[in-house]
């Protein structure tokens, strides 16, 4: 700037000064082009999501009924009656069991990695967690099949074991990332008040990271609820309602969707659409509930 305008100068001169600083020509158009390209990319990415959701909703609502929600699957795909209650119960039992095992274990492992783990052992655990996140889920199914199903038979516990193995690395890695975000200053504040390391973790670190940990757990639950391949090898599937944990095959929503969708009869395919909607709604409701609980546990601002 050659000169600084004095307060007494006319308003018109100042406005022209400001306007002269506006980006013009190539810079202006580069900016607009880049913004448009980014917006376009977002819209493009939204198209498949929007199509899938709207299609599932339209097709699913057409086949949805109280009977579908409250009846087990008929023994013939051709019959246009019954529903997926057997699958709903199976998914609830298996995902619930898997969550009960993998979430506490995963959070404890993440605390170990973040707060205590040093050196080779911690790096090994971290490395194998990453590897496990990428392992195709059918391998997990095969592992549980050879290790547990061959000696003990198909059952809910076997399915839950496979799901827990899939969930565990997700919980570990997301929780660890969230614990990393808790400011060191908060921990030091706690230590300076004479808190032990354990008290600091339980009373300061975990509560501060809770919203993030909840998100990680939800990701893992949603992933487990949608898994099909490992359940074929461990839960097998069933057309009757069962709540037995072991010694009897059990069904799950993804299994019933898979069976319904690949058979040639219209009634079975319609049930699959309704099942897909049910599974989607289940994950969505669960996500919302967990979010509400997590935000309740924080204090009002």
């Amino acid at each position: 700037m050659g000169r600084s305008p004095s307060p007494g100068e006319s308003a018109g001169a100042k406005v022209s000064d400001i306007n002269s600083a506006r980006p013009a020509g190539r810079r202006l158009w580069t900016n607009r082009l880049a913004s448009a390209a980014m917006l376009g990319a977002v819209l493009l990415a939204m198209i498949p999501v929007g199509l899938i959701l709207s299609y599932i909703f339209a097709k699913g609502m057409a086949a949805m009924s109280w009977e579908f929600l409250s009846e087990p699957t008929p023994f013939s795909f051709r019959r246009a009656e019954g529903g997926f209650l057997n699958g709903l119960i199976g998914t609830g039992i298996m995902v619930g069991l898997a969550t009960l095992v993998s979430v506490p274990l995963g959070i404890l492992a993440a605390i170990y990695l973040q707060e205590y783990g040093r050196g080779l052992l911690a790096n090994l655990i971290r490395f194998f967690s990453d590897v496990m996140t990428g392992v195709p889920s059918v391998f997990v199914g095969l592992f549980v099949y050879t290790a547990f199903v061959l000696p003990f038979g198909f059952g809910a516990v076997m399915g839950a074991a496979a799901l827990a193995i899939i969930m565990l690395p997700i919980v570990v890695r997301t929780t660890e990332e969230m614990l990393k975000l808790v400011p060191l200053e908060l921990q030091h504040g706690s230590f300076a008040l004479g808190a032990s390391k354990f008290q600091t973790i339980i009373r300061v670190v975990l509560p501060s990271a809770l919203p993030g940990i909840t998100t990680g757990v939800l990701l893992a639950v949603a992933r487990a609820a949608g898994e099909t391949a490992p359940l074929i090898l461990t839960a097998l599937g069933s057309l009757t309602i069962t709540t037995k944990l072991i010694g009897e095959p059990i069904s799950a929503l993804p299994l019933l969707i898979f069976d319904g969708a690949r058979n040639p009869f219209a009634a079975g395919q319609e049930r699959a659409w309704a099942g897909a909607l049910e599974l989607l709604a289940l994950v969505l409701i669960f996500t919302l509930l967990a979010r509400i609980v997590a935000s309740r546990s924080k204090i009002s601002s």
């Binding site: 400011p183 008040l193 004479g194 509560p207």
Partner: peptide, 30 residues
């Protein structure tokens, strides 16, 4: 035990993401 006798205030205010009451009650509680 040393830190229970010798308190510390840091350069940047570092209250816990808790209520005012729970911040003050933190030390006595633990």
């Amino acid at each position: 035990a040393v830190r229970r006798r010798i308190g510390m205030v840091f350069q940047r205010p570092n209250p816990f993401p808790k209520s005012v009451y729970d911040n003050v009650a933190f030390g006595p509680r633990i």
